[in-house]
Design a protein around this nucleic acid. Structure first.
Lengths: 206, 206, 206, 206
DNA sequence: GATGAATGAGTCTTCATTCAT
DNA sequence: AATGAATGAAGACTCATTCAT
């Protein structure tokens, strides 16, 4: 076989990543053996190691690659003009997460949580995740500044502090929906709206 | 069995748990071998297995036992009369978490995240955590009802939806402070206050 | 099982070493798998790793431990008074090597050659072997000084240069007897005696 | 097949052999993977297998091909008339070995030792090496006969026994210079001269 | 109760070789 | 002739758990 095309190479990686996602979802990062992934991917051991240097490499890709996609997907939401108000934004963001995250045989939400745990022990992965999460939070902060200008909040807090809390809500939603099963995008949206006084502010602005 | 024996038993368990917490913090749940815990605890392999039936048993205890303590510790906060307003409550709750969680050589925050990951794969642990988290959230919901009565929120949302969001912020705070390092109790408190319009509402109530 | 006695521990190590020697002789250092040694030793994988940290560790022990014994065994030969003349000494040394080296199912001569090859790639092993070989050569040099005083050689060469050549003969004997099969202690002894003019010198001294 | 093709084939083989020698020197025979050789040679896997049937084939070529060259190179030394005396001969032989053996990024001395180890496990290689070594030793024996006739040694020993010892010194020199680093052609030459009473014999012959 | 040596299935990874292109 | 992706058996090593003492 002569040199493979870049496209085919990407396909193969995705094929392996898909197998990894399925396994990681069901059995966790450590509960999944390379043999599991190899079997599910339908490739040989050697082939898998041709595309990923090690299990850690594969884990990093599995945890990280999806995050990049999500950021890309969320772009329009961050750049909409005029910016959505806090309630609408958070509602959309959670819905987007839910949509993006739910796949056939696995949920990226679940894999993200496994990734957090892994990152606490693996400095490289932690740095990668930290970078990507900080990017998202900064995007929220940009919006928060506009919200402040628009009078949604007072000036006592800084925009990035508000962003922190909004981002916490997103992360907390992931945990609750993964572990408690009784949390929906709708209930979270309504709770957030109430908490942030969105109705009242909308009224006042009207 | 005389009472002394029961006490000794509890002491030994705590001794082992402490070793486990230290190891779990540094190396994660799967990265820690029983041999690690045995070495750090200063006991023998046989002895450790006398107090915990298996590694899974020890993990469950390590993840769970602390949660019980926390719930106990948070009781006064939930039962204070008159109830704290949302901003004050969340500020206190996060501070309490931070205080409770930070120990000499390990942080229960970190161990909790490892626990989530583990729970996603271990139905028994998941059920245990779900029960305890739901309890806490219910306590928050009780408060939220009072906040609603006190006019902090409108009636569009249900108390348990608000509680959901508040709880998400607590969980999200844990994730952010563990992974991003740049989050403080103060910044989160201020962000929450701003988001929930606490100043304006306080003014209005005054 | 409570703590094992130091003696039993040494026994176990020897049991494993014996298995290793047998395997290394037949299949070489790399051709032998840990599974081979484990099978031949009659122990379990875990047990073997309880006594030797790694295959490299076991290789070092297998190559090195015998050398120590040999040095001990050769002591009387080095310390005999009056010192043996060069011919007698080399004859004895080669015979001693042959006797020491030939064991039931393996020959330490063969294992030593495997060890040289390994040492060329493994700095730690090389250093260990170099130290032990230098020690032996120094002992020969001590004798060579006495030979010189006794008039066996002129003063053009230094004792350690003579020792070098004597030691080369020993090493070369190992290689030839391992690879060419047609070399005997007797033929080597006679060749050395002739080369070093031993008969003539003996006559002259008489 | 035209002549050019045959030349190209030899060139390619040498290109691969050079890569193999470099790798074998640094990493040993088993420590070197075919991938290593392929990378260093600059060819493709398929190409390498076009010129050598297997790794064993390549090892045999790497160990053996150089020996043939050496024998060729040593011819004049063996055939010089009048024959060199023992001291001069050994000095020249060791020097020749040193010169022949030392190459840019590898030393054939080192590779020869790896070869011995390999030969102990690989009957085919052993036979090939044995044949070539015996040839060299026979050449020395031819000389030794002449030495004997010339009165350098008594008649107690056979020429081939003397040759055995001379050859041992050559092999031993290889081992010592590879493992102990402190051995030079000069020190070995002087030691040999002293041991074999060359000065005295020269004097007497004068 | 307490010890710690022993077990052996299971883990990740490598590598000589092939063969479709 | 030449390429290099693919194979899959085999390698070294770990680790939760037990049980004879």
């Amino acid at each position: 076989m002569p040199k493979i095309s870049e496209e085919r190479r990407a396909d193969r990686r995705l094929q392996i990543l898909n197998a990894a996602w399925k396994c990681f979802h069901r059995q966790g990062l450590h509960g999944t053996s390379m043999a599991d992934i190899i079997r599910v991917s339908g490739l040989s051991a050697g082939a898998v190691y041709l595309y990923f240097r090690s299990k850690d490499d594969l884990i990093e890709a599995a945890v990280t690659s999806s995050l990049g996609e999500f950021t890309e997907l969320a772009k329009p939401l961050f750049e909409r003009t005029p910016p959505a108000d806090p309630g609408a934004f958070m509602t959309e963001l959670v819905r987007l997460l839910e949509r993006f995250t739910k796949r056939g045989e696995y949920s990226l939400k679940v894999i993200a949580i496994h990734g957090w745990s892994q990152a606490l022990t693996d400095a490289k992965l932690k740095a990668t995740i930290a970078k990507m999460y900080t990017d998202i939070r900064n995007q929220i902060a940009r919006l928060a500044t506009m919200w402040q200008v628009a009078g949604f909040f007072g000036t006592a807090a800084q925009a990035n502090e508000v962003a922190e809390v909004c981002f916490s809500m997103l992360l907390g939603y992931m945990v609750q929906s993964a572990l408690l099963d009784d949390v929906t995008t709708a209930s979270h949206a309504k709770g957030f709206a109430a908490l942030s006084q969105i109705e009242r502010l909308r009224e006042r602005r009207a």
